[in-house]
Design a protein around this nucleic acid. Structure first.
Lengths: 208, 208
DNA sequence: TAGATTGTTAATCGATTAACAATC
DNA sequence: TAGATTGTTAATCGATTAACAATC
């Protein structure tokens, strides 16, 4: 009777990038060693939770000492599959799209936006930052050709599901969706959502 | 012995804006009645969870029928304190800031960006969309004067904590932070985070 | 050695789900 | 009435925390 490989809870996976981010800042400060306590203080997370989370993947620390920052960084990068570069397609060449291609934070974190699509005729062929804007009609061809697996949706809500359908059909398996709508995708496709309204409305609950 | 007023779990509060968003789409489609089942299907949430979440606040449906969409919308807006308009300060007049002020989604959802700050001398006095860019030095004066309680941080990570400190000192009680860093704020101040890198890295875990 | 911190266990805490009586 | 769906309870499931032996 084969034992089911116990999967790591998704909520744990979601915290790993935060640990990685904190470790990167510590490294930039010239630090070499840290502790679950210090990481927790920086992130507002208990030290016990950090140790528990890491224990799903192995033993990365040393009793009495803590964690070697560069080593733990490398381990987290490996676990998250960041020991390679991921090419990302951007759909939507509006203001948000421009902010994303101008954002310097992607490159050194393992991601590169390599192609931009829009369906507006007057934008096609123009540039968004350094990148040429391609016709959305060309999405299947270009994405399949470049074997792109990740995409960012930055189009109006009304178009987002149709875009997602094409992306999935073209082989994309992970979508970061800025459109304020829940997408319907196959179970093997990852989706994460960013909707500032949802976050603002969450906070107003607590405002008198 | 006074009973402690049982607070509603924060994770429940976080879902209410999603319910509200889905109801708004249904209303736009001309629908008048919906069910926990239908809402759940649209959101990828179980119907039981939706009913349980709503039960924290009262009884909003009718057995055998479901929920009257406009009524439930109004109730959620009231619960989330969206039956008023919230003025929001934006700090950071870069590409992201521009995308935010151009974004049409805020106004009809209860939020209005009313002032923009930046510390770059060459930007001060210029416009970001319709709004004049003010000197970051003027934040305390203007925010206190306008009694602004919500702010969006769209500055580089290295400046975000200092900005947050000034915002809190000026009376802001809810911050939407786009800078990739965990902020340290008093417990009575709400913070929500948007960092696309964190979401992308979360998804790469699941990519082979 | 003394002090510190990990990795892990067990207990606690909290959230989700299943199920169904109530009732429209 | 028959069918449908809520609101709620109890059970299940899962996540967090506390505590400490191990050990650097």
């Amino acid at each position: 009777m084969a034992s089911t490989p116990k999967t790591v809870p998704d909520i744990v996976i979601g915290r790993l990038p935060l640990y990685l981010r904190a470790l990167t800042y510590l490294a930039a400060e010239g630090r070499e060693i840290t502790s679950s306590q210090e990481l927790g203080d920086r992130l507002g997370i208990s030290s016990a939770q950090i140790r528990k989370d890491l224990s799903h993947f192995g033993e990365f620390g040393k009793q009495g000492t803590g964690y070697e920052i560069q080593f733990l960084r490398q381990q987290l990068r490996r676990i998250l599959h960041l020991d390679r570069e991921w090419e990302v397609a951007l759909v939507g060449a509006g203001d948000l799209g421009l902010a994303l291609v101008h954002y310097g934070g992607f490159a050194d974190k393992g991601f590169q936006i390599v192609v931009v699509f829009d369906r507006a005729t007057q934008k096609i062929g123009k540039r968004l930052g350094e990148l040429e804007i391609f016709d959305a009609e060309a999405m299947p061809t270009i994405i399949k050709d470049k074997r792109i697996e990740m995409a960012i949706i930055a189009v109006p809500a009304a178009e987002a599901q149709a875009v997602a359908d094409v992306l999935v059909e073209s082989g994309v398996r992970a979508i970061l969706n800025y459109a304020p709508i829940t997408l319907s995708v196959p179970p093997n496709v990852q989706v994460q959502y960013i909707d500032p309204i949802v976050y603002l409305q969450h906070m107003t609950y607590y405002l008198a």
